[in-house]
Amino acid sequence: MFGLELSMIWAVLIAVAVFIYVALDGFDLGVGILFPFAKDARERDQMQAAIAPVWDGNETWLVLGGGGLFAAFPKAYAALMPAVYLPIILMLLALIFRGVAFEFRHHARERGRRFWTAAFAGGSFAAAVAQGLVLGGFVQGVRIENGAFVGGAFDWLTPFSLMVATALVIGYALLGAAWLVFKTQGALFDRARAWLKQASLLVMLAMGAVSLATLGVDPRVTARWGVSMTNVDWPVFVRLAPLPVIAAMLCVFLWRGAEGRNHLTPYLLAVGLFLVGYVGLAVSLFPYIIPFAMTPADAAAADNALSLMLWGALVLLPVILSYTAYVYWLFRAKVGSDGAYH
């Protein structure tokens, strides 16, 4: 279709879905990660109210990511999931705890309420850690023979994946803080601004560290960037240099934007930062759908399945994006100090 490989179109579509997931669920997971730093129960209510109407839709992008990978690239899905079995299960369990906590916090009495508050914070944190471990385990490569995973149960657990997990927790906290700047007022708003400044500093460090470490995961990544521990291949690196430069600029803008007048700007900047990191990762790993083992063409479903789904996606995704935008527009107001929308 249009002279493009169907499998490549689907790889891009799924990459976009995963990015939308990260940008959207990232902020509501981030709010959960920041939960322990709230002053009191009233602030926690406001924080949860800032995400309650939209979290479910945000999480659906994760289902699209997983379901889409299954449908469009069954062989990649089948090879990858057993490889990151334990962190995936951890993520699912964590998402259960934080998901039900939205409702349960309001129905429980005293002790139960404390439990579900902890479950919301802990679940959000653990989900972010698990996603970081999956990402780290994915980027460092998966042992595959004849299309099946042949590694051990803990192959994903390396210093690199732990580093990625730490970075992702910080990154989600940044998105969460930025979202709270957009959605809250009063004392919580001031606090969110402070969190935003701290998080943007930490993110700069974490992103730098992960970027450097990624160069070391495979010689192919090193060659693509033209950067190794001992040597910089300038002609190669210069073409990609805008990415780290833009990332550094965005961090500075975020630091300064925390004080700015437009309260949505920090969130957009934070998403921009994630986008730069995401593009950087894509550059490193292209054209693999499972790093260094499978390309989209290797892993793709049959052409008739891909084209059937493409037509559906072309018609339905714009519809989905419009009503998602409508719901965000509907709940655009700041949350009041009583936790209500005004």
Binding site: D56, G57, A71, A72, K75, A79, M81, M309, Y323, Y326
Partner: peptide, 29 residues
């Protein structure tokens, strides 16, 4: 998953596209 993905995968993809987003978004409203 690897063997039947090309047959039932699209059905699950259509479930996400036609149902899950619809439910999740309008549930908020």
């Amino acid at each position: 998953s690897a063997q039947v993905g090309s047959v039932i995968g699209p059905l699950l993809a259509y479930e996400v596209l036609t149902a899950f987003f619809l439910e999740a978004s309008f549930l908020g409203v």
